[in-house]
Every structure is written in C-alpha cells, then in structure tokens.
Design a protein around this nucleic acid. Structure first.
Lengths: 196, 196
DNA sequence: GGAATTTCCTAAACTAGTTCATTTTTTTTG
DNA sequence: CAAAAAAAATGAACTAGTTTAGGAAATTCC
C-alpha cells in the first residue's frame, strides 16, 4: 500500500466516510523522511506537525536540569507522535522528538488540520476519537506508573508492547519506565537467572 | 448562577454557539447530589456519566493487589471527573470515584453525549477540545512524575493547584503524587523547620 | 576495516523513599 | 458531647532503586 492508502485505511478504522472524503483527508498529509538521530521537534520551537509513522521509529523526551533524559513516548509504524502541548496550543515545545531509525512519516500541518475539522463533521469526530483514545491510554499508563514496581512496569511493557521490544534502545526504555539504565539491566539479569 | 447557566458559560469558553444551542446543550445535563464518601463509579460497573462538579470535591483512585490506593485524579468546582477508560469505551470501570465532600454535579449520560455530538458539529468540537486539553494536561503530569523528586512534585502541586490544597486529604494527595503518607508528612515537617 | 562513539553490563556504596509500629490529633456520628 | 473512627505525625529499621566508576560489546563513520 502507498502512504495515502495507508492513512485512508487508518481513518476508516475510526469513522465511516466516503471514498472521496477519505481521499481528501489523505491529500492533506505529506510524506517526510528523517535520518536516525534527526530531531523533528525541539524545545523552544513550536511543533508544526502531527506525525503518523509509516516506517521507522521515534522517541519523544524531555531533558531535566541535570541533563537526565525522560522518555515520554515511543512511536513505530501506525503510531502518532508530536509534542501535544506544543501542537495543540501552538506554543513552544518542551520536548525533543527524535528519529531512532531512518524513518518515513505522513504529517499534517496544524492549520491544515483546523481546515479539515471545520470542513467536515466526520473529520472533527476523527480527531475527537483519537484524542479520547490517547487520553485513555495515558490514564492507563499513569496507573501502572503509580501502582507497579520497576520490575512489574518492565514486564507490563514487554507483554503489552512486544513490538517495541528490541526496537527501542535500553536507555530509552529505562527512562520511559521511570528507572535508570543500570537498574533495568539488573532486572533483565535477575530474570535470566531466576526464571524459565 | 443556576446550574444550567454555569454549564452554558462553561461550553461558551471553548466554542462559539448560539444561545439556543447552549440551552440545548445544558438541557442534556441533570444535577445529582452526593454525600461525602459516596461512590459514583465503582470497579466492575460501567461509568454511565461524565460529571461536571458544581460544588464539593471528588477523587478517583485504583486499589492495588495489596490494598494500596493510588489517586488518579481530583476534581473540585469547574472540573470534570469520571473513569475515562470506562466511560469512553463503555467498559467496566477499574477505578473508584468517590465524593470527598457533600457534592453537587451536573452529569451527562453517555448515550445523550453521543446524540449531542451527532446533532451538531459544534458539540463534537467541544468534546474534541476538552479531550485534547485533558490529554495535554496528562502529558504535563507524566513529565513531572518522571522528572521530579517527591518533594519537588509536592511543591509543583502546591504552586500549580493551590485551590486543591486543604480541600483534599493528605493521604489522598500523597498517593496522587506517588509517595506514602508518611513521607509527605516528613516533607511538610522538613519544610516547616528549614524554610521561611 | 579500524578508530571513535554509543550502548550495555557489572558491582559496590549510597540514599530517597518505604514499611512497620505506635501515638496524637481531628473528624464523624449516635 | 463523648465514644468511635478516620486522618496525620513520629521515629526507627529497612529496601528498592540510584549513583558512581569502570569495562565490554556493539554501532557508526570516515
């Protein structure tokens, strides 16, 4: 499938629209390629795009006072990524979004997205649905962060996001799960000896 | 202002609609009173309503295997509360939502909300906007949970949500901030002696 | 293909935050 | 208003996770 077919089938998962509407929706996206380690969002600059990953992988993270990185989100094929606080409010970003691999994305410009939503009730619904789903997912993550131990968080990630395992570097996963690389390493070692 | 005037002025903060549309919107809500410690959502039961707090205070929380409570959200006047995973997907809840004080809410039924969204593009926009804003807020919270120490999280809460201070019990705040009551107590004591 | 850089691992010392057990204070309720 | 229940405080022992430091693999890049 070509990029536009992919995004068409994506939107059709969530709302029922005509072929023409789906084509119009797809036409509002443009493809963009990024090389490994390239930044697509940087603190201080406003996130102009909402990005849908076709190929490759991304990671969004913030950098604390002492230079500690905290991974906010990962995105591989069929996931969205941007700095939502920056994109939604069109304010300077506080996060980095970086390519973890050479990647290909479909992206929509903020203003184009507003046009889409104004033009057609169905598109407004679509963006409402994906926002609600993202919110629900964030709430689930918050719950695991608050209730689980470091090891449980790791197990939870392994079982719920197996496709991400191996795709994302360990230091990035550790900071996503809210622990140090050293501790994640120790967990994996402990596992190897204790279990199975 | 009476309840319906309040919710009318609430929606008008986010979208521009006619007086008639605002009246219709308000007419889809009903008021409900709850006594302190009363549950409005319980695990196993599907959250039927999205609740807008007029008076009083609520707390949503999950209970872990060993009985440890983790507060997910607080809501006082002018805030929304429900179990979003349950409400959005109309699945059994995993959270409790409990009144912290005798409270008065305006609530909308899930099916009524769908009607509203289908009837009028503006209402669809409204729910899209509040979902996006809630998502952005969740992302900000995730960042502070990942980057700050327990004491910093407390300070951050004090400065960003002063209206909640004093309104919510300490044990609930501690579990919201991801620490034990004992530790929060120690932080406050430390503050009293060290600073100002 | 080899030097440089990045990522991952190991281990010991350490500390931020927890657990447990008890007491004091505040709130609720008959 | 007194008894009971709930919430907050205190302190000591403990531990899950961090820090620091060094070395081993694995990737990257000229």
């Amino acid at each position: 499938m070509n990029p536009h077919e992919i995004i068409k089938s994506y939107i059709q998962r969530y709302i029922e629209i005509t072929e023409e509407e789906a084509d119009y929706f797809a036409s509002c996206f443009e493809t963009a390629r990024f090389k490994k380690r390239q930044y697509i969002v940087q603190p201080g600059f406003t996130a102009k795009y909402r990005n849908y990953v076709l190929e490759g992988a991304f990671r969004s993270f913030v950098v604390g006072d002492q230079g500690q990185e905290s991974t906010i989100e990962f995105a591989i094929d069929d996931w969205w990524i941007t700095d939502y606080n920056s994109y939604i409010f069109q304010q300077p970003a506080s996060m980095f979004v970086m390519a973890l691999e050479d990647s290909l994305v479909l992206r929509i410009d903020f203003h184009k997205e507003q046009e889409l939503k104004n033009a057609n009730h169905h598109f407004e619904s679509f963006f409402r649905i994906i926002a609600e789903r993202a919110l629900a997912a964030h709430q689930r993550r918050l719950i695991s962060n608050l209730t689980l131990t470091a090891e449980e968080r790791f197990t939870h990630f392994e079982t719920n996001f197996p496709k991400f395992m191996g795709r994302v570097p360990q230091y990035a996963l550790a900071s996503f799960l809210g622990m140090t690389t050293e501790f994640l390493s120790r967990i994996r070692k402990r596992r190897l000896h204790n279990k199975s």
